[in-house]
Simulated assay, not measured.
Amino acid sequence: MELSNKELQQITRLQEALLNIRLDRGRIGDLLAEVAALVQAKAAMGAWLDGGVPIIVTHRAGPQIETYFARVFDGVDVEGNLRATDPDLDRINLSRRRLGSGVYHENVLAERESVTRAAYFQEAFAPAGMHHVIGMTTRLAVGEALFAFGFEGDDDPGFVSGRTETLLRLLLPAFSFGFGAIDRAHRHQQRLDKAIAEARVPATLNRPGINGHHLHRDRAGTPLIRLPLPELSGEEGGQLQVSLDALHLEDLAAALAKRFALSPRQRETAELMLRGLTSREIAHQLGIRMNTARRHCEAVLQKAGVARRDQLAILSLSELVDG
């Protein structure tokens, strides 16, 4: 199959756009429309996951597909497959994902007679103008990303000539890379959110020039360290960073209190010990007798299982960071 210079330029532009795709309905809809024009499809649909929720966009197709998919969506199984209450649609979805990333003519997935009898065809695809379908798909950790193109009749050139499959195979590597990058970034984000939520060290997510999103209580001061997150940084707003705040003695004392069941007074004593105060200074700070302060200090060391105050400081840091 020969391609004109105009078609080659269009394919190059689409490849670049797919390599840098973002989960934006409008932008993906525009790309879907361009690819549909390239393969001379009468209608098209795109589907992907956004936060575990299936999203569908259409081009020159009626609303029936999106409505039908929303009605029959039945969650995700343990293998990451999207399930449907429509058994025929469920079987095709499972088959397509098991085949993996590729360009698939509908006759690879089901016989025509079984397609036209199926509820998804009669209630969604046929009314939406997608009587015959060829699509490209890429398998993701959960579900898949799909661009499917609809053609009218059995003799529609886009459906029977082989041209559509050839053009889609040229776009498939960029399509797979773009949606795969989004999928990886989403999984990185999930792991990061979990790590920050469970962190014992206060952390902040921010972009340069944009107020940070503090997931632990905010404290003034310069962060201990800033780490760039290139996998999660989009093209808008600069590079995402995670900032780790400097450790605070009240957090260290709280970690000791939780681990060794210190009383409220012993926790106060532990924090003052970590600040380097002597027993006399602790007594003055707490407004108690020096002998009482000394007994609190001894109780803290005994419960923590250490003999010296410097060992208490090392232990508290270990408790906070290592959990």
Rank of each mutant, 00 (worst) to 15 (best):
M1E: 12
M1N: 08
E2R: 15
S4W: 10
N5M: 12
Q10F: 04
T12R: 15
A17D: 11
L18W: 07
R22N: 07
G26S: 11
I28L: 07
G29V: 05
V35G: 00
V35Q: 00
A37Q: 15
V39Q: 01
V39L: 01
M45Q: 08
G46E: 13
W48F: 00
G51S: 04
V53P: 05
P54W: 04
P54T: 01
V57K: 02
T58R: 06
A61F: 10
P63T: 07
Q64I: 09
E66M: 06
T67K: 13
A70I: 11
R71Q: 11
R71S: 08
F73G: 01
N81H: 11
R83I: 06
T85C: 09
D90Q: 07
S95W: 13
R97M: 12
G100Q: 08
G102F: 05
V103Y: 00
H105E: 04
R112T: 09
S114V: 12
V115N: 00
R117V: 15
A119G: 15
Y120M: 04
F121H: 06
F125G: 02
A128N: 05
F149P: 13
G150M: 14
E152L: 07
D155F: 03
S161I: 09
E165R: 06
L167T: 02
L168Q: 04
R169Q: 09
L172F: 01
F175L: 01
F177C: 06
F179Q: 04
G180Q: 14
A185S: 08
Q189M: 14
Q189V: 05
E198Y: 11
E198Q: 15
V201E: 14
P202F: 01
A203F: 10
T204G: 04
N206C: 15
G209Q: 08
G209P: 08
N211T: 13
H214M: 09
D218Q: 14
R219K: 08
L224Y: 06
R226Q: 10
L229I: 02
L229K: 05
L240N: 03
V242R: 08
D245G: 04
A246S: 11
D251V: 04
A253Q: 10
A255F: 04
A261L: 12
R265A: 00
M273E: 04
R275F: 08
L277N: 03
R280I: 03
I288C: 03
N291F: 10
T292N: 07
A293M: 12
R294C: 06
A299W: 15
R309Y: 03
D310W: 07
A313T: 09
E319L: 12
E319S: 02
L320I: 04
D322V: 14
D322A: 09
G323S: 11
